[in-house]
């Protein structure tokens, strides 16, 4: 069982990129992430959603789906489209590789997702779509660990 779960569906409009990353960040905030951890998640979500819009649907209208789950102190985020799919996943993962250089795309999307999240799985079928699954463990703050230790002492004081 998950500790929490949410689903989000929206049109593949670029104005929804900010909406998507802010919504996921709000969902994750119960884990009390640091500003840096939250920035990591927002950036990874932004990259994945942008990919759905410009690569999956190639600016045509489609639906982008996000499913986010919290399992203990790990967040799992699935971002999927039913667009054209990735021809060569290995190549797509490579830093600086892009099929849209004409749009000034840097080819850093997957590299950023991989370095900001703990795990990134790419599941893509040509003509059917792509699903990205990312996981990140939110580190417990020292204060919380101390609180737990005090609690585990069972009211000695």
């Amino acid at each position: 069982m998950y500790d929490n779960e949410m689903k989000l569906e929206f049109l593949s409009k670029s104005s929804n990129e900010a909406f998507a990353r802010i919504t996921v960040a709000a969902f994750v905030s119960v884990l009390d992430p640091t500003i840096e951890e939250l920035a990591d998640i927002k950036t990874a979500v932004s990259e994945a959603v942008t990919n759905c819009i410009i690569h999956g649907y190639e600016d045509a209208e489609g639906i982008v789906k996000i499913k986010a789950r919290i399992i203990k102190n790990t967040v799992e985020i699935e971002i999927s489209d039913t667009g054209k799919g990735i021809e060569n996943v290995e190549l797509a993962r490579k830093p600086l590789y892009t099929t849209k250089a004409n749009l000034e795309r840097s080819g850093m999307g997957f590299t950023i997702m991989e370095s900001f999240m703990d795990e990134v799985d790419i599941d893509s079928v040509l003509g059917l779509g792509t699903k990205i699954t990312m996981r990140k463990k939110i580190k417990k703050h020292l204060v919380d660990i101390e609180k737990e230790e005090i609690a585990s002492l069972g009211g000695v004081c």
Binding site: T43, E104, R105, I112
Partner: peptide, 13 residues
């Protein structure tokens, strides 16, 4: 306050 890889492309351009 936030930038993703789209910013990289924009700056290089």
């Amino acid at each position: 306050s936030f930038m993703d890889s789209a910013g990289i492309g924009m700056i290089i351009g």
